[in-house]
Design a binder for these strands. Structure first.
Length: 619
DNA sequence: ATAGGGTTAG
């Protein structure tokens, strides 16, 4: 048996050959005192089986943990070849494992891939799956981690049987997933297909989930299709993860298609499926999203799936994001009518929505109601409230909230401090803001990019340019990298000063640093040019925006239309308005105001077929 | 140790 393996060695990749050889040499030097039992022509670590191997004696030694005796015994050959013998001896798999771990610790080495694979197979055949799992977990965390190529090769060469090998590969992928080694997991998934191993949902679902978390949506799609192609039996969870992937990618139509697909395959969407879809619409749905979300709720009812607390929470969140607080409150009431108790998340969503709209009193009422119903405020509740006080410029109350958090046994987090720091900056109290940064560091809450963004914005608003750039250096020296928001803040400051050209220069710097501009980046620049009356540059920036893959949005058009109106170029403004409508963009309240003030009042009626007015009625 | 919700900076 062991010689069979030697014969297969030349087939290995050079890389593996070398690493085996290295290991071999290591052993040779380490155990040079032992009688040379391995012949020099033998290119593996495995010398011929020792004649003096006494299985029952070894078994007893391992069982009784007589490690020093074992050490003497193994020195007669070497620990690696000794293991080789054990693996084939028929010795109980637990004892082999015990020896395996001891020898790695004792001799400070790692056994080679092939021995690992043999051990996995031995364990698999005695159904010790938990042990394989924990071994694999350590295995993939090793510095000298082995390639998938060598693992798959070893597994198929040492011949553990189809089922055992499939299970091992399954657990290998799972180990990669737990170690967040996404690319390796996916590679192993593909290789499993090549080798014809049958994977289970035990590995596929967690891998899909990790891919979604890391926003590798294209790969999610590939895996999903592969799973169907390989006839892996999917379950509702698989579909839910894939739906979530499409939703996060903003491909809501594709997400709905997956739901249809799951129905066709005989699965009923669960409440989680629906919640995922509703969340997708709430977060990425664009205009009219809450209408679709509402329709989904009806579809849910007709499918006899009952909404959960989460369902309502998502809807409340969506309406709050739309600033439609009356709708959010309606949902809040509706859930209670249906016998569901609002939880901390429900209250937090509403309190946050109210605070953002400046309805601090209502938010405080809800907080009291929350406490009254026996719920504990958490740090997110406090952060939302702190934001509410800050918006109202009630700095004293915001600051008191910080002390309150401590008294309640909660820990202020980076968001808490950032909110307060921003409030101080916006009130022009930058010294206090900087002081707060020191306070947070004393409490081992470390500033992040947002902290610096608040402070940099504060300095820039005050016109303290050197202080701002010193802070930016400070940030990078602390290992924090500027992000798109940092740049937007700087761009905005330059544009406000009438230095839009200079701001546009920062755009190139962003690309050099691999920071993708956002819609707001371009819109800020376009706005800057418009304010300077440089409409030509504004239009050029819009063209650049499109070239660089960002579609002008309603805000872009609003800025441009306003710019043209202010220059008295109503004809062109009207042209832009119609262009916007042709592109299917829905005008908003600002559009309406721009049009009304600058055009309609001057007797210039835009050709917009009443569309605009409907929107203003809704909002 | 496989699926769903809430907070800050532009």
């Amino acid at each position: 048996m062991s010689y069979l393996c030697h014969l297969q060695l030349p087939k290995r990749s050079l890389h593996i050959g070398i690493s085996l050889l290295n290991l071999h040499l290591q052993y040779q030097t380490r155990f040079s005192s032992s009688s040379s039992s391995s012949s020099s022509s033998d290119s593996t670590v495995t010398p011929p089986v020792s004649h003096t191997f006494d299985l029952s004696r070894v078994s007893k030694l391992i069982t009784n943990q007589k490690w020093s005796d074992l050490k003497t015994l193994t020195k007669q050959t070497n620990p690696n070849s000794f293991l080789h013998v054990l693996l084939q001896s028929g010795l109980d798999s637990d004892l082999v494992l015990h020896y395996f771990k001891w020898s790695e610790r004792e001799f400070g080495v790692s056994h080679n891939v092939e021995l690992y694979c043999r051990l996995f197979q031995l364990l698999a055949n005695s159904k010790k799956y938990g042990k394989i799992r924990s071994l694999l977990h350590d295995f993939v965390e090793k510095d000298e981690m082995h390639t998938n190529s060598s693992i798959f090769h070893s597994i198929s060469v040492t011949g553990g049987g189809f089922c055992a090998n499939s299970i091992i590969v399954d657990m290998l992928i799972l180990a990669y997933v737990y170690g967040s080694k996404t690319d390796l997991a996916f590679e192993a998934f593909l290789r499993a297909g090549d080798y014809g191993f049958k994977l289970s949902l035990r590995s596929c679902n967690p891998m899909l989930n990790l891919l979604v978390k890391e926003r590798k949506f294209a790969v999610v799609e590939i895996v999903y299709k592969e799973m169907i192609g390989r006839r892996i039996e999917l379950d509702v969870i698989t579909f839910n993860i894939v739906v979530k992937g499409f939703c996060k990618a903003g491909k809501l139509k594709a997400a709905r298609d997956v739901v249809e697909d799951m129905k066709v395959r005989g699965f009923s969407p669960s409440v989680v499926t629906y919640n995922t879809l509703v969340e997708g619409y709430c977060k990425n749905g664009g205009a009219g999203k809450m209408y679709t979300a509402d329709r989904l709720l009806k579809e849910m009812a007709s499918d006899n799936v009952h909404p959960s607390e989460s369902t309502f929470n998502i809807l409340i969140y969506g309406f709050c994001k739309d600033k439609n607080l009356s709708a959010a409150m309606k949902v809040f009431k509706e859930m209670q009518d249906q016998g569901l108790k609002p939880g901390v998340v429900t209250y937090n969503s509403l309190i946050n929505g109210l605070c953002k709209e400046g309805k601090l009193d209502d938010a405080l009422c809800l907080r009291d109601e929350m406490v009254g119903s026996g719920l504990q405020l958490n740090i997110i509740t406090y952060n939302a409230l702190m934001h509410g006080f800050s918006k109202k410029k009630m700095l004293k109350e915001a600051r008191e909230l910080l002390d309150d958090i401590g008294k309640k046994g909660l820990a202020a987090d980076v968001v808490t401090f950032n909110t307060l720091i921003d409030a101080y900056c916006k009130a022009g109290k930058i010294e206090e803001a900087i002081e707060l940064r020191n306070v947070m560091m004393d409490k081992t809450v470390f500033p992040d990019v947002a902290t610096y963004n608040c402070l940099v914005g504060g300095f820039l608003r005050e016109g303290k340019l050197e202080a701002a750039s010193k802070l930016l250096d400070d940030m990078e020296n602390n290992g924090l990298r500027a992000d798109v928001i940092t740049y937007n803040i700087r761009l905005n400051a330059l544009c406000k000063k009438g230095e839009s050209r200079k701001a546009a220069g920062l755009l190139d710097e962003m690309f050099e640093r691999g920071i993708r501009p956002s819609h707001l980046t371009y819109n800020t620049l376009i706005d800057g040019y418009c304010s300077e009356g440089n409409l030509r540059a504004a239009l050029n920036m819009r063209a650049r925006m499109e070239r660089e893959g960002k579609r002008p949005n309603v805000v872009t058009y609003n800025i441009l239309i306003k710019g043209f109106c202010e220059k008295g170029k109503l004809e062109e403004a009207n042209g832009l308005l119609n262009e916007m409508l042709e592109k299917g963009l829905v005008p908003n309240r600002t559009t309406y105001e721009v049009v009304k003030d600058e055009m309609v009042e001057r007797g210039f009626y835009p050709d917009i077929d009443g569309h605009l007015y409907n929107v203003s009625v809704n909002s």
